[in-house]
């Protein structure tokens, strides 16, 4: 399309300018439009990113003198059992942040398979979107209270006679991480559900009718019509939720501070602690770079599977 644009005659000049000069003028205007945004982007994203990379090769406490440390920080990140566990925690969170919202969203979408209109639809949208609007900090506080010893979860368990299940969820070695996962799932549930419900209305209903005439079972409809039809929306949900899980910070900071032990410590929290509390800026930066790469590596296949085939 850019070719078209450059062939547009400039109204102020009767004689068309030489193509090269026009091109130069145009790229100058383009730069004027793009540069301010790029400057901010460079100053507060690209430069810090390069600095992160630079710090990651240093041994530095953030105050005194820095020393070159080679790849030691990266080796530590990839071999230290605690740090590996912390990275593993983030991937475990993906299970909860992603599978619960996408699974429940698919269930609702394929059951309803239609537009949600009227007052009910509106109420649904409003309520399901609430967790998206509030700060994650608030979600963390609300759920810390839900999971507290005297909180609603334990209260509910007691009321149905499951007193033996009552526990301090966020302090339990087995249950703390799933509990944090539930908080994330709660936040992301509404968004995924609504995306999938909206997506399914775009699938041609005649496909379902034809399938029914062929005697297809509901499972087959789901497998061969719904899933492929929703590929793009599912991709979106997975992308958003995976990033939310791998880069989580707010929820963990508020609800568990990474405990008990390090069962709920995630890379985001550990970067913060290493850099500002334990004064290991180099190691923190190496972990930051590794986290960034892991996010990219996790998202790339999702994007590839769900977009390019269309």
């Amino acid at each position: 399309m850019t070719e078209n644009a450059s062939s547009v005659p400039d109204a102020r000049h009767q004689i068309p300018l030489p193509a090269a000069r026009r091109g130069r003028r145009k790229s100058l205007t383009a730069w004027l439009f793009i540069t301010p945004a790029f400057l901010f982007y460079a100053a507060f994203v690209l430069v810090p990113l390069i600095m992160s990379l630079y710090y990651s090769f240093l041994r530095w406490d953030g105050i005194g003198e820095a020393r070159f440390h080679g790849l030691t920080n990266y080796i530590t990140v990839l071999t230290d059992s605690d740090l590996l566990q912390i990275i593993g925690n983030a991937f475990q969170l993906v299970l909860y942040f992603t599978i619960i919202p996408v699974g429940l969203g698919l269930a609702v979408a394929s059951a309803i398979r239609g537009q949600m209109n009227g007052r009910f639809g509106m109420a649904t949208r409003t309520i399901l979107f609430l967790p998206q609007v509030i700060p994650l900090v608030a979600a963390g506080i609300a759920w810390s209270w839900m999971f507290a010893s005297t909180g609603l979860v334990n209260q509910a368990l007691k009321s149905v006679g499951l007193s033996s299940w009552v526990k301090g969820w966020l302090g339990d070695f087995v249950w703390a991480l799933p509990a944090v996962g539930v908080i994330g799932a709660w936040v992301l549930l509404g968004l995924c559900t609504m995306l999938l419900v909206t997506g399914i209305t775009k699938i041609d209903t005649s496909l379902y009718e034809a399938a029914r005439l062929d005697g297809a079972r509901p499972w087959h409809e789901f497998r061969y019509i719904t899933l492929p039809g929703l590929r793009q929306e599912i991709g979106v949900c997975i992308t958003v939720t995976v990033i939310a899980a791998l880069a989580s910070f707010d929820i963990v900071y508020i609800s568990t501070q990474g405990g008990p032990g390090i069962t709920t410590t995630v890379p985001g929290l550990e970067i913060y602690r290493l850099a500002f509390a334990h004064r290991q800026v180099g190691l923190a930066s190496a972990l930051a770079i590794v986290l960034m790469v892991l996010v990219l590596l996790s998202i790339a296949p999702v994007q590839w599977f769900t977009r390019d085939k269309k």
Binding site: G171, D172, F173, G259, P260, G261, A277, H278, R279
Partner: peptide, 20 residues
Amino acid sequence: TGAIFAAGWTPELQKMIGGQ
């Protein structure tokens, strides 16, 4: 030390009471 509580005693004692 500055970080021995956060990085040492706290996680390890949490593990201990959790039977780990």
